[in-house]
Design a protein around this nucleic acid. Structure first.
Lengths: 180, 180
DNA sequence: CAAGTGATGCATCGATACGATATATAACAA
DNA sequence: TTGTTATATATCGTATCGATGCATCACTTG
Protein backbone atom coordinates (compact mmCIF):
# COMPACT_ATOMS: atom_id res chain seq x y z
CA UNK A 1 0.00 0.00 0.00
CA UNK A 2 1.02 3.56 -0.74
CA UNK A 3 2.47 5.23 2.36
CA UNK A 4 1.35 8.46 3.97
CA UNK A 5 4.36 10.37 2.68
CA UNK A 6 3.22 9.70 -0.88
CA UNK A 7 -0.39 10.54 -0.03
CA UNK A 8 0.79 13.92 1.29
CA UNK A 9 2.89 14.54 -1.81
CA UNK A 10 -0.18 13.81 -3.88
CA UNK A 11 -2.26 16.42 -2.09
CA UNK A 12 0.56 18.98 -2.20
CA UNK A 13 1.03 18.39 -5.92
CA UNK A 14 -2.33 20.15 -6.36
CA UNK A 15 -1.32 23.18 -4.29
CA UNK A 16 0.18 24.40 -1.02
CA UNK A 17 -1.53 23.15 2.12
CA UNK A 18 -1.18 22.78 5.87
CA UNK A 19 -1.31 19.48 7.72
CA UNK A 20 -4.86 20.23 8.73
CA UNK A 21 -5.90 20.93 5.15
CA UNK A 22 -4.26 17.72 3.97
CA UNK A 23 -6.30 15.84 6.53
CA UNK A 24 -9.47 17.44 5.21
CA UNK A 25 -8.71 16.15 1.72
CA UNK A 26 -8.91 12.62 3.05
CA UNK A 27 -12.13 13.36 4.88
CA UNK A 28 -14.05 15.17 2.18
CA UNK A 29 -12.36 15.53 -1.19
CA UNK A 30 -12.33 13.09 -4.12
CA UNK A 31 -9.40 11.28 -2.50
CA UNK A 32 -11.48 10.46 0.57
CA UNK A 33 -13.24 7.49 -1.00
CA UNK A 34 -10.21 5.28 -1.46
CA UNK A 35 -7.45 6.80 0.69
CA UNK A 36 -7.11 7.82 4.30
CA UNK A 37 -4.61 9.26 6.78
CA UNK A 38 -4.95 10.76 10.25
CA UNK A 39 -2.97 13.45 12.04
CA UNK A 40 -0.91 10.81 13.76
CA UNK A 41 0.46 9.78 10.38
CA UNK A 42 0.44 13.08 8.51
CA UNK A 43 2.57 15.17 10.87
CA UNK A 44 5.42 12.65 11.12
CA UNK A 45 5.23 12.17 7.35
CA UNK A 46 5.55 15.93 6.74
CA UNK A 47 8.56 16.01 9.05
CA UNK A 48 10.31 13.31 7.07
CA UNK A 49 9.42 14.92 3.74
CA UNK A 50 10.98 18.15 5.00
CA UNK A 51 14.15 16.29 6.02
CA UNK A 52 14.31 14.68 2.58
CA UNK A 53 13.84 18.01 0.80
CA UNK A 54 10.70 16.86 -0.95
CA UNK A 55 8.66 19.67 0.54
CA UNK A 56 9.48 23.09 2.02
CA UNK A 57 7.71 25.16 4.63
CA UNK A 58 6.49 28.56 3.48
CA UNK A 59 7.30 31.50 5.76
CA UNK A 60 3.95 32.57 7.20
CA UNK A 61 3.36 36.23 6.46
CA UNK A 62 3.35 37.63 10.00
CA UNK A 63 -0.24 38.83 9.60
CA UNK A 64 -3.01 37.83 11.94
CA UNK A 65 -2.99 34.13 12.67
CA UNK A 66 0.20 32.83 14.18
CA UNK A 67 0.38 29.12 13.48
CA UNK A 68 -0.79 27.37 10.26
CA UNK A 69 2.33 25.99 8.61
CA UNK A 70 1.96 25.91 4.83
CA UNK A 71 3.90 23.32 2.89
CA UNK A 72 4.92 23.32 -0.77
CA UNK A 73 6.15 20.41 -2.87
CA UNK A 74 9.64 20.70 -4.45
CA UNK A 75 10.82 19.33 -7.82
CA UNK A 76 12.44 16.49 -5.92
CA UNK A 77 9.08 15.81 -4.30
CA UNK A 78 7.29 15.77 -7.65
CA UNK A 79 9.82 13.29 -8.91
CA UNK A 80 9.33 11.03 -5.88
CA UNK A 81 5.56 11.23 -6.37
CA UNK A 82 5.88 10.27 -10.02
CA UNK A 83 8.04 7.29 -9.13
CA UNK A 84 5.35 6.09 -6.73
CA UNK A 85 2.58 6.63 -9.25
CA UNK A 86 4.16 4.43 -11.92
CA UNK A 87 4.72 1.51 -9.59
CA UNK A 88 2.34 -1.41 -10.06
CA UNK A 89 -0.53 -0.68 -7.68
CA UNK A 90 -1.22 -3.27 -4.98
CA UNK A 91 -4.59 -4.99 -4.76
CA UNK A 92 -7.64 -3.07 -3.52
CA UNK A 93 -8.68 -3.65 0.06
CA UNK A 94 -12.20 -3.71 1.43
CA UNK A 95 -12.68 -3.67 5.18
CA UNK A 96 -16.10 -3.99 6.66
CA UNK A 97 -16.99 -4.69 10.25
CA UNK A 98 -20.60 -5.00 9.19
CA UNK A 99 -19.82 -7.84 6.80
CA UNK A 100 -17.79 -9.65 9.44
CA UNK A 101 -20.72 -9.34 11.82
CA UNK A 102 -23.28 -10.45 9.26
CA UNK A 103 -21.28 -13.56 8.43
CA UNK A 104 -22.24 -14.61 11.98
CA UNK A 105 -25.80 -13.51 11.43
CA UNK A 106 -27.26 -16.75 12.80
CA UNK A 107 -25.83 -15.91 16.25
CA UNK A 108 -27.59 -12.56 16.47
CA UNK A 109 -31.12 -11.41 17.30
CA UNK A 110 -33.06 -10.97 14.02
CA UNK A 111 -34.34 -7.55 15.07
CA UNK A 112 -30.82 -6.36 15.72
CA UNK A 113 -29.70 -7.65 12.33
CA UNK A 114 -32.50 -5.82 10.60
CA UNK A 115 -31.65 -2.60 12.39
CA UNK A 116 -27.94 -2.49 11.63
CA UNK A 117 -28.57 -3.31 7.98
CA UNK A 118 -31.23 -0.62 7.74
CA UNK A 119 -28.92 1.92 9.35
CA UNK A 120 -26.16 1.12 6.90
CA UNK A 121 -28.50 1.48 3.94
CA UNK A 122 -29.39 4.97 5.18
CA UNK A 123 -25.71 5.84 5.52
CA UNK A 124 -25.00 4.82 1.95
CA UNK A 125 -28.08 6.53 0.55
CA UNK A 126 -26.94 9.71 2.26
CA UNK A 127 -23.45 9.45 0.82
CA UNK A 128 -24.85 8.79 -2.63
CA UNK A 129 -27.10 11.85 -2.44
CA UNK A 130 -24.18 14.04 -1.36
CA UNK A 131 -21.99 12.75 -4.17
CA UNK A 132 -24.68 13.30 -6.77
CA UNK A 133 -24.95 16.97 -5.83
CA UNK A 134 -21.20 17.54 -5.63
CA UNK A 135 -20.59 15.75 -8.90
CA UNK A 136 -22.63 18.26 -10.80
CA UNK A 137 -21.30 21.37 -9.02
CA UNK A 138 -17.69 21.02 -7.89
CA UNK A 139 -14.85 21.46 -10.35
CA UNK A 140 -12.86 18.28 -10.94
CA UNK A 141 -10.05 16.99 -13.14
CA UNK A 142 -10.86 13.99 -15.37
CA UNK A 143 -9.02 11.72 -12.95
CA UNK A 144 -11.00 13.01 -10.00
CA UNK A 145 -14.28 12.61 -11.85
CA UNK A 146 -13.32 9.05 -12.71
CA UNK A 147 -12.54 8.23 -9.10
CA UNK A 148 -15.70 9.84 -7.76
CA UNK A 149 -17.70 7.97 -10.36
CA UNK A 150 -16.20 4.74 -9.10
CA UNK A 151 -17.12 5.68 -5.54
CA UNK A 152 -20.68 6.32 -6.63
CA UNK A 153 -20.85 3.04 -8.52
CA UNK A 154 -19.66 1.06 -5.52
CA UNK A 155 -21.93 2.82 -3.03
CA UNK A 156 -24.91 2.15 -5.27
CA UNK A 157 -23.98 -1.50 -5.63
CA UNK A 158 -23.63 -1.90 -1.86
CA UNK A 159 -26.87 -0.07 -1.03
CA UNK A 160 -28.72 -2.01 -3.72
CA UNK A 161 -27.43 -5.37 -2.53
CA UNK A 162 -28.28 -4.63 1.09
CA UNK A 163 -31.80 -3.63 0.12
CA UNK A 164 -32.37 -6.64 -2.07
CA UNK A 165 -31.02 -9.31 0.26
CA UNK A 166 -31.80 -7.88 3.67
CA UNK A 167 -34.93 -9.99 4.08
CA UNK A 168 -33.24 -13.28 3.23
CA UNK A 169 -30.70 -12.88 6.00
CA UNK A 170 -33.21 -11.74 8.60
CA UNK A 171 -35.52 -14.59 7.66
CA UNK A 172 -32.72 -17.12 8.09
CA UNK A 173 -31.87 -15.65 11.49
CA UNK A 174 -35.52 -15.89 12.49
CA UNK A 175 -35.63 -19.59 11.62
CA UNK A 176 -32.42 -20.13 13.58
CA UNK A 177 -33.76 -18.35 16.66
CA UNK A 178 -36.92 -20.48 16.64
CA UNK A 179 -34.88 -23.67 16.63
CA UNK A 180 -32.75 -22.54 19.57
CA UNK B 1 -12.40 -1.33 13.36
CA UNK B 2 -12.66 -4.80 14.83
CA UNK B 3 -9.32 -5.97 16.20
CA UNK B 4 -7.43 -9.13 15.31
CA UNK B 5 -8.31 -10.79 18.61
CA UNK B 6 -11.99 -10.64 17.68
CA UNK B 7 -11.29 -11.80 14.14
CA UNK B 8 -9.53 -14.87 15.54
CA UNK B 9 -12.40 -15.56 17.93
CA UNK B 10 -14.73 -15.41 14.96
CA UNK B 11 -12.79 -18.05 13.06
CA UNK B 12 -12.44 -20.26 16.14
CA UNK B 13 -16.17 -20.03 16.83
CA UNK B 14 -16.61 -22.21 13.73
CA UNK B 15 -14.16 -24.86 14.89
CA UNK B 16 -10.68 -25.53 16.27
CA UNK B 17 -7.82 -24.17 14.21
CA UNK B 18 -4.12 -23.38 14.23
CA UNK B 19 -2.65 -19.94 13.60
CA UNK B 20 -1.81 -20.98 10.09
CA UNK B 21 -5.34 -22.17 9.41
CA UNK B 22 -6.76 -18.92 10.77
CA UNK B 23 -4.56 -17.07 8.35
CA UNK B 24 -5.89 -19.14 5.47
CA UNK B 25 -9.45 -18.15 6.34
CA UNK B 26 -8.52 -14.53 5.67
CA UNK B 27 -6.83 -15.45 2.44
CA UNK B 28 -9.43 -17.73 0.91
CA UNK B 29 -12.64 -18.22 2.89
CA UNK B 30 -15.81 -16.11 2.87
CA UNK B 31 -14.22 -13.82 5.45
CA UNK B 32 -11.41 -12.92 3.07
CA UNK B 33 -13.40 -10.35 1.13
CA UNK B 34 -13.91 -7.87 3.95
CA UNK B 35 -11.43 -8.83 6.68
CA UNK B 36 -7.70 -9.43 6.85
CA UNK B 37 -4.94 -10.34 9.28
CA UNK B 38 -1.36 -11.49 8.84
CA UNK B 39 0.84 -13.74 10.98
CA UNK B 40 2.40 -10.71 12.60
CA UNK B 41 -0.99 -9.86 14.09
CA UNK B 42 -2.48 -13.32 14.58
CA UNK B 43 0.21 -14.88 16.75
CA UNK B 44 0.37 -12.02 19.28
CA UNK B 45 -3.44 -11.99 19.33
CA UNK B 46 -3.60 -15.71 20.10
CA UNK B 47 -1.10 -15.20 22.90
CA UNK B 48 -3.26 -12.51 24.48
CA UNK B 49 -6.43 -14.58 24.03
CA UNK B 50 -4.71 -17.45 25.85
CA UNK B 51 -3.72 -15.13 28.69
CA UNK B 52 -7.29 -13.87 28.93
CA UNK B 53 -8.69 -17.41 28.97
CA UNK B 54 -10.78 -16.84 25.86
CA UNK B 55 -9.11 -19.71 24.04
CA UNK B 56 -7.20 -22.83 25.12
CA UNK B 57 -4.50 -24.82 23.38
CA UNK B 58 -5.33 -28.43 22.66
CA UNK B 59 -2.69 -31.06 23.60
CA UNK B 60 -1.40 -32.32 20.25
CA UNK B 61 -1.76 -36.08 20.10
CA UNK B 62 1.89 -37.15 19.95
CA UNK B 63 1.40 -38.71 16.52
CA UNK B 64 3.52 -37.85 13.54
CA UNK B 65 3.80 -34.09 13.10
CA UNK B 66 5.36 -32.29 16.02
CA UNK B 67 4.24 -28.67 15.92
CA UNK B 68 0.80 -27.39 14.80
CA UNK B 69 -0.82 -25.86 17.85
CA UNK B 70 -4.58 -26.21 17.75
CA UNK B 71 -6.67 -23.63 19.55
CA UNK B 72 -10.24 -23.90 20.82
CA UNK B 73 -12.56 -21.10 21.88
CA UNK B 74 -13.89 -21.14 25.48
CA UNK B 75 -17.31 -20.00 26.76
CA UNK B 76 -15.63 -16.80 27.92
CA UNK B 77 -14.32 -16.36 24.40
CA UNK B 78 -17.75 -16.87 22.88
CA UNK B 79 -19.13 -14.26 25.22
CA UNK B 80 -16.40 -11.77 24.25
CA UNK B 81 -17.11 -12.46 20.56
CA UNK B 82 -20.81 -11.85 21.06
CA UNK B 83 -20.12 -8.56 22.82
CA UNK B 84 -18.04 -7.43 19.84
CA UNK B 85 -20.67 -8.55 17.34
CA UNK B 86 -23.45 -6.49 18.88
CA UNK B 87 -21.43 -3.27 18.96
CA UNK B 88 -22.39 -0.71 16.34
CA UNK B 89 -20.12 -1.51 13.39
CA UNK B 90 -17.78 1.23 12.22
CA UNK B 91 -17.96 2.58 8.68
CA UNK B 92 -16.72 0.47 5.78
CA UNK B 93 -13.28 1.30 4.43
CA UNK B 94 -12.14 1.11 0.83
CA UNK B 95 -8.45 1.39 0.10
CA UNK B 96 -7.22 1.49 -3.44
CA UNK B 97 -3.79 2.46 -4.66
CA UNK B 98 -5.11 2.26 -8.19
CA UNK B 99 -7.76 4.90 -7.53
CA UNK B 100 -5.20 7.18 -5.90
CA UNK B 101 -2.99 6.80 -8.95
CA UNK B 102 -5.83 7.35 -11.41
CA UNK B 103 -6.87 10.55 -9.70
CA UNK B 104 -3.53 11.88 -11.03
CA UNK B 105 -4.18 10.34 -14.41
CA UNK B 106 -3.28 13.53 -16.27
CA UNK B 107 0.33 13.21 -15.03
CA UNK B 108 0.82 9.72 -16.45
CA UNK B 109 1.54 8.28 -19.92
CA UNK B 110 -1.78 7.28 -21.54
CA UNK B 111 -0.46 3.87 -22.54
CA UNK B 112 0.55 3.14 -18.97
CA UNK B 113 -2.88 4.19 -17.74
CA UNK B 114 -4.58 1.90 -20.19
CA UNK B 115 -2.40 -1.01 -19.15
CA UNK B 116 -2.90 -0.78 -15.40
CA UNK B 117 -6.66 -0.42 -15.84
CA UNK B 118 -6.77 -3.40 -18.18
CA UNK B 119 -4.73 -5.48 -15.75
CA UNK B 120 -7.08 -4.65 -12.93
CA UNK B 121 -10.12 -5.56 -14.99
CA UNK B 122 -8.56 -8.98 -15.60
CA UNK B 123 -7.90 -9.41 -11.90
CA UNK B 124 -11.51 -8.69 -11.02
CA UNK B 125 -12.91 -10.86 -13.81
CA UNK B 126 -10.79 -13.70 -12.48
CA UNK B 127 -12.03 -13.20 -8.91
CA UNK B 128 -15.62 -13.05 -10.13
CA UNK B 129 -15.23 -16.30 -12.07
CA UNK B 130 -13.74 -18.03 -9.02
CA UNK B 131 -16.53 -16.82 -6.78
CA UNK B 132 -19.23 -17.92 -9.21
CA UNK B 133 -17.89 -21.48 -9.16
CA UNK B 134 -17.42 -21.60 -5.38
CA UNK B 135 -20.81 -20.08 -4.73
CA UNK B 136 -22.56 -23.00 -6.34
CA UNK B 137 -20.39 -25.76 -4.85
CA UNK B 138 -19.04 -24.89 -1.39
CA UNK B 139 -21.27 -25.27 1.65
CA UNK B 140 -22.05 -21.96 3.37
CA UNK B 141 -24.19 -20.61 6.19
CA UNK B 142 -26.80 -17.99 5.25
CA UNK B 143 -24.51 -15.28 6.66
CA UNK B 144 -21.59 -16.48 4.60
CA UNK B 145 -23.68 -16.62 1.45
CA UNK B 146 -24.85 -13.09 2.11
CA UNK B 147 -21.31 -11.82 2.51
CA UNK B 148 -20.02 -13.64 -0.54
CA UNK B 149 -22.90 -12.26 -2.52
CA UNK B 150 -21.92 -8.77 -1.47
CA UNK B 151 -18.35 -9.45 -2.54
CA UNK B 152 -19.57 -10.57 -5.93
CA UNK B 153 -21.84 -7.53 -6.30
CA UNK B 154 -18.99 -5.14 -5.54
CA UNK B 155 -16.48 -6.86 -7.79
CA UNK B 156 -18.95 -6.77 -10.65
CA UNK B 157 -19.65 -3.09 -10.07
CA UNK B 158 -15.93 -2.28 -10.06
CA UNK B 159 -15.11 -4.35 -13.14
CA UNK B 160 -18.11 -2.92 -14.98
CA UNK B 161 -17.22 0.66 -14.12
CA UNK B 162 -13.60 0.21 -15.16
CA UNK B 163 -14.68 -1.27 -18.48
CA UNK B 164 -17.23 1.43 -19.20
CA UNK B 165 -15.12 4.46 -18.29
CA UNK B 166 -11.63 3.31 -19.18
CA UNK B 167 -11.66 5.08 -22.54
CA UNK B 168 -12.75 8.44 -21.13
CA UNK B 169 -9.80 8.61 -18.77
CA UNK B 170 -7.25 7.48 -21.34
CA UNK B 171 -8.64 9.96 -23.86
CA UNK B 172 -8.31 12.79 -21.35
CA UNK B 173 -4.73 11.79 -20.62
CA UNK B 174 -3.98 11.74 -24.34
CA UNK B 175 -5.26 15.30 -24.75
CA UNK B 176 -3.19 16.38 -21.78
CA UNK B 177 0.00 14.79 -23.14
CA UNK B 178 -0.45 16.56 -26.48
CA UNK B 179 -0.66 19.93 -24.80
CA UNK B 180 2.51 19.33 -22.78
C1' DC C 1 -22.83 40.23 26.74
C1' DA C 2 -21.43 36.00 28.47
C1' DA C 3 -21.24 31.36 27.61
C1' DG C 4 -21.19 27.56 25.03
C1' DT C 5 -20.36 25.14 20.69
C1' DG C 6 -17.96 23.97 16.73
C1' DA C 7 -14.50 24.65 13.36
C1' DT C 8 -9.56 25.62 12.64
C1' DG C 9 -4.96 24.33 13.67
C1' DC C 10 -0.76 21.92 15.78
C1' DA C 11 1.11 18.01 18.03
C1' DT C 12 2.20 13.67 20.78
C1' DC C 13 1.83 9.00 22.65
C1' DG C 14 0.75 4.23 23.38
C1' DA C 15 -1.28 0.33 21.41
C1' DT C 16 -1.89 -2.01 17.38
C1' DA C 17 -1.04 -3.78 12.93
C1' DC C 18 1.76 -4.51 8.84
C1' DG C 19 5.33 -6.56 6.04
C1' DA C 20 9.35 -8.72 5.59
C1' DT C 21 12.07 -12.20 7.15
C1' DA C 22 13.91 -16.53 9.40
C1' DT C 23 13.48 -21.32 10.22
C1' DA C 24 12.08 -26.08 9.61
C1' DT C 25 9.55 -30.14 7.86
C1' DA C 26 6.81 -32.70 4.52
C1' DA C 27 5.25 -33.74 -0.08
C1' DC C 28 5.90 -34.01 -4.75
C1' DA C 29 7.70 -33.22 -9.21
C1' DA C 30 11.74 -32.76 -12.43
C1' DT D 1 18.63 -35.36 -5.79
C1' DT D 2 17.45 -31.14 -6.36
C1' DG D 3 14.10 -27.75 -6.38
C1' DT D 4 9.53 -26.06 -5.38
C1' DT D 5 5.39 -25.60 -3.05
C1' DA D 6 2.63 -26.07 1.07
C1' DT D 7 2.51 -26.47 5.97
C1' DA D 8 3.66 -24.31 10.22
C1' DT D 9 5.49 -21.11 13.98
C1' DA D 10 7.51 -16.93 15.27
C1' DT D 11 9.86 -12.25 15.65
C1' DC D 12 11.25 -7.50 14.70
C1' DG D 13 11.35 -2.85 13.05
C1' DT D 14 8.49 0.36 11.14
C1' DA D 15 4.12 2.51 10.07
C1' DT D 16 -0.24 3.45 11.25
C1' DC D 17 -4.34 4.29 14.11
C1' DG D 18 -7.10 6.37 17.58
C1' DA D 19 -7.48 9.04 21.37
C1' DT D 20 -6.21 12.96 23.61
C1' DG D 21 -4.52 17.65 24.74
C1' DC D 22 -4.22 22.37 23.87
C1' DA D 23 -4.98 26.72 21.89
C1' DT D 24 -7.63 30.37 18.92
C1' DC D 25 -11.43 32.24 16.43
C1' DA D 26 -16.25 32.57 14.84
C1' DC D 27 -20.86 32.11 15.61
C1' DT D 28 -25.05 31.57 17.92
C1' DT D 29 -28.11 31.34 21.75
C1' DG D 30 -30.09 32.49 26.06
Amino acid sequence: MIDVKTLCLGVLSRGDASGYEIRKEFEEGPLSHFSDAGFGSIYPALKRLLDDGQIVMLPHNGDGRPDKKLYRITPSGRHALYQSLIKTPSADKLRSDLMFILSFGHLLPPRHLDRIIGDRISDYRQMIATLEVEGSTAHRTPGERFVEGMGLAIYRAVAGYLEEHRHELVAAALMESQVA
